[in-house]
């Protein structure tokens, strides 16, 4: 029981990170109908920028307290957003309205570029940063087993919920959100109605990248070690989460992220850690066989 509770806490905090990245996938998919294959690497870039910011703050002796973490988050979001913007500018905008596979390949190219760019500029070795937020709260004790709700996990959950709340307001209550939803429905019509689709799509990438930066920062703080390759697996998992939830659906992305996080954690805890990825992917495949558009995805109506 206590063990399961601990796994639940771990699973939710991991799932939140996946959910944040998945939102970026699903937003971009919703608006341009394409997979942003470089998104996982944008997440990795976010983690690296956060790491460098932390080191800078440590040099200045300012790396403590919530304010410092907020600052790290903001710096990482700002610089990563610029990467998101550039990805759209370089790999997507020139190919808008072109063949579907072309942007996919150019995005894979960008993904290779980003990975190797970080490898070249920062080195291939893993970067251990150590524990930045130590400690936690003891939730429950069951014999020798202590259920720990660490401050990092609280941070992850609080930041994620906060960011998602802001983001939800942004999408549902602001003119930008309206423009985004209009482009999602019919971008040609939206542009005829005077919506600057270029700007809206750019902003979608920027927001997606900023959310990935939050995820990257939280990941870096949580695990204390990153390398240039973390983007691939996290990206694939988050993409899986987005598809599982129903790609294009924002609540679906968060739900999918949580599910993937929980499946992975519980599978590792009770079966075998080695096959946790297999478990996550298998559940995706099985879900899609029965629900071809994911859990919360809109049913595609076949127009004849």
């Amino acid at each position: 029981m206590a063990y399961a509770l601990q796994q639940l806490i771990n699973g939710i905090s991991l799932g939140m990170i996946y959910g944040l990245i998945a939102v970026g996938y699903t937003m971009v998919y919703g608006i341009i109908g394409m997979i942003n294959f470089a998104h996982g690497d944008v997440f990795m870039i976010g983690a690296f920028i956060a790491l460098i910011t932390v080191l800078l703050l440590q040099l200045g002796g300012m790396m403590d307290g919530p304010a410092a973490i907020l600052l790290v988050l903001l710096v990482s979001m700002a610089f990563t957003a610029l990467y998101g913007w550039s990805v759209e500018r370089v790999a997507y905008r020139p190919l808008r309205g072109s063949f579907r596979l072309a942007p996919l390949i150019s995005a894979i190219g960008i993904s290779i570029v980003l990975q190797n760019y970080v490898q070249v500029s920062q080195g291939a070795r893993v970067k251990p940063i150590g524990t930045l937020v130590p400690g936690g709260v003891e939730v429950m004790r069951d014999g020798p087993f202590v259920v720990q709700f660490s401050y990092i996990q609280m941070l992850i959950i609080a930041v994620t919920l906060g960011v998602l709340a802001v983001f939800t307001i942004l999408v549902t209550r602001t003119p930008l959100g309206r423009a985004m939803r209009a482009c999602e429905q019919d971008s040609k019509m939206a542009s005829l109605l005077g919506i600057d689709t270029d700007r809206t799509i750019s902003l979608t990438f920027v927001i997606g990248a900023a959310l990935a930066a939050v995820a990257g920062t939280l990941y870096m703080i949580r695990y204390g070690v990153i390398d240039f390759y973390i983007g691939f697996l996290a990206g694939v998992k988050a993409f899986t989460a987005a598809v599982l939830g129903g790609i294009g659906s924002l609540p679906g992305a968060v739900l999918g992220g949580l599910l993937i996080g929980l499946i992975e954690t519980f599978w590792s805890a009770y079966f075998s850690a080695q096959y946790k990825d297999v478990a996550a992917f298998s559940i995706l495949v099985v879900t899609l066989i029965f629900l071809p558009t994911g859990l919360l995805g809109r049913q595609e109506v076949e127009k004849v």
Partner: peptide, 21 residues
Amino acid sequence: DEWRMLVFGGAMVVIMVLRPR
């Protein structure tokens, strides 16, 4: 060496942008 993959990825982007088909 390690720059090679970087160039490889960049080439993919450039070719695709110029010749989507």
